[in-house]
Design a protein around this nucleic acid. Structure first.
Length: 266
DNA sequence: ACCACGCTCGGGTTTACATCA
DNA sequence: ATTGATGTAAACCCGAGCGTG
């Protein structure tokens, strides 16, 4: 257990870290922070103070101006079960020393405010099995939530509506990703089939080419039996009488014109 | 019609945490 | 027992679209 006692004293106007700003990324000043606060606690107590009672980390840490400036904390044991706000306040009351302006400590966190570690790093809540199951069941019924459904679900699961909203957003993203993977696999199989078909067709082409070659060889052997091509009327007449092997060549035509051979090419 | 505002969503990213070698 | 790599998922950021006053 960490017992590094920390003493923090800060004074003055501070800027809310972007990551905890409700206005998503837009920096804003918080006039309410114009207060003098002195906190004495262990590091884990700092966590509780900030997570549950919304002390601005600027007030705890002092002069830093970004969330990452507070991230040098050791890992904090995650809280699987959401404890009630009252319990947290009670814990705080026994641990903290608050000299001036308790406002920051006693304000209940808003729906959109997230949990953060001491010094401003966000704390990641793991949903319990039961919470996940309920959310999954709800997702099966409807992949999006209206405000009332969200609130009801949040109340039922002791979560903030924002957490329910985020869960559904991430769940939809996961579903889509999975579907994309399935589609990708289908396309891959289709591609393999086409490749296979293409290979077969190429084989067929090679067969035909070799057949054509052998036929052309036969033509050479029976060159003397050529006769007129009826379509182009160009003649290389060898005077043969057997028209089963007759062939004629046309000027400007690469393809030989066959006679007597069942309509293979012409 | 235009504007400001709030809300929600999708897509992408960050990061706390768990697990495993 | 410790540690680094890796995967997962909660939380976040941002831009876009829509409804409303």
């Amino acid at each position: 257990m960490m017992c590094n006692t920390r003493l923090s004293l800060s004074l003055g106007l501070s800027t809310t870290p972007p990551h905890q700003n409700n206005n998503k990324g837009k920096l804003s000043t918080n006039d309410d922070n114009q207060e003098l606060t002195l906190c004495l606690s262990t590091s884990s107590e700092f966590t509780n103070n900030y997570d549950n009672n919304r002390i601005n980390p600027q007030l705890l840490g002092g002069v830093n101006s970004s969330a990452s400036s507070f991230s040098n904390t050791s890992s904090v044991k995650r809280e699987r079960d959401a404890s009630s706000f009252e319990e947290e306040v009670e814990n705080l009351e026994t641990k903290k020393v608050l000299l001036i302006s308790p406002k920051g400590l006693v304000d209940h966190k808003d729906d959109d405010e997230e949990d953060v570690h001491d010094y401003g790093t966000r704390k990641k809540l793991r949903l319990t099995k039961e919470q996940s199951d309920v959310l999954e069941d709800s997702f099966k019924e409807h992949t999006t939530l209206n405000s009332k459904q969200k609130r009801d679900l949040a109340r039922r699961l002791s979560l903030r509506p924002r957490q329910v909203e985020v869960w559904f957003q991430n769940r939809r993203a996961r579903t889509k990703l999975k579907q994309t993977e399935v589609n990708c696999e289908i396309l891959r199989k289709h591609y393999e089939e086409l490749k296979d078909e293409n290979r077969k067709l190429n084989k067929e082409i090679q067969k035909l080419k070799s057949l054509k070659k052998s036929q052309s060889f036969r033509v050479k052997l029976s060159a003397a039996t050529l006769s007129m091509c009826q379509s182009c009327e160009r003649t290389y007449n060898g005077g043969a009488t057997d028209n089963s092997t007759k062939i004629s060549y046309s000027i400007g035509d690469q393809k030989p014109h066959f006679y007597g051979i069942p309509s293979q090419i012409h």
